[in-house]
């Protein structure tokens, strides 16, 4: 295991721990947000985004490059029709299953075994996208 993979593994453990603590690993919690009954996930996403904002926009002022090498580059994508059509399709699926990709993995970690069917379907969906529209 090289050092980059170790860092990603530890980062993943932290990410999954936070998803579970914040309840996003439970489809019921996600659905109650999307049904506008509990706005807590706005706080969760806000707290995660503000923390990451400092890492992406402030830390590079004091640190020339990442500690293990590489470069600091904000995550940008070009806006296209696919961005929006894809987000519409994702949103419809999110409201149906109550799961997004990361939360589905964390859901497995809290013992929700039926979510394996959802994760398998995500792979099939991603395959269909790459096979027919990639």
């Amino acid at each position: 295991m090289n050092s980059r993979n170790i860092v990603l593994f530890i980062g993943g453990i932290t990410f999954g721990f936070g998803l579970a603590w914040g309840g996003m690993s439970k489809p019921e919690v996600v659905l109650s947000f999307l049904q506008l009954k509990d706005y807590g996930l706005v706080l969760l996403m806000g707290a995660a985004t503000v923390t990451t904002f400092f890492a992406i926009n402030v830390v590079p002022r004091f640190l020339k490059e990442p500690i293990l090498g590489g470069e600091f580059k904000p995550r940008t994508r070009t806006l296209s029709r696919n961005t929006i059509v894809g987000a519409i399709i994702f949103g419809l699926g999110w409201g149906l299953a109550g799961l997004c990709p990361g939360a589905a993995l964390a859901s497995l970690g809290i013992g929700n075994l039926p979510v394996l069917a959802g994760i398998a379907s995500m792979f099939v969906g991603a395959y269909a996208m790459g096979r027919f529209f990639g």
Binding site: R4, V7, L8, I10, G11, G12, I13, T14, F15, F17, G18, L19, A20, W21, G22, G23, M24, G40, L41, L43, L44, M45, G46, A47, A48, T49, V50, T51, T52, F54, A55, I56, V59, L63, E65, P66, I67, L68, G69, G70, E71, F72, K73
Partner: peptide, 21 residues
């Protein structure tokens, strides 16, 4: 629980970014 969970997620993402970009 939402705020703490979100902060922990942000720390994980930031940790990876600061070390590897």
């Amino acid at each position: 629980s939402y705020i703490i969970g979100g902060l922990i997620i942000g720390i994980g993402v930031s940790f990876v970014y600061i070390l590897t970009g």
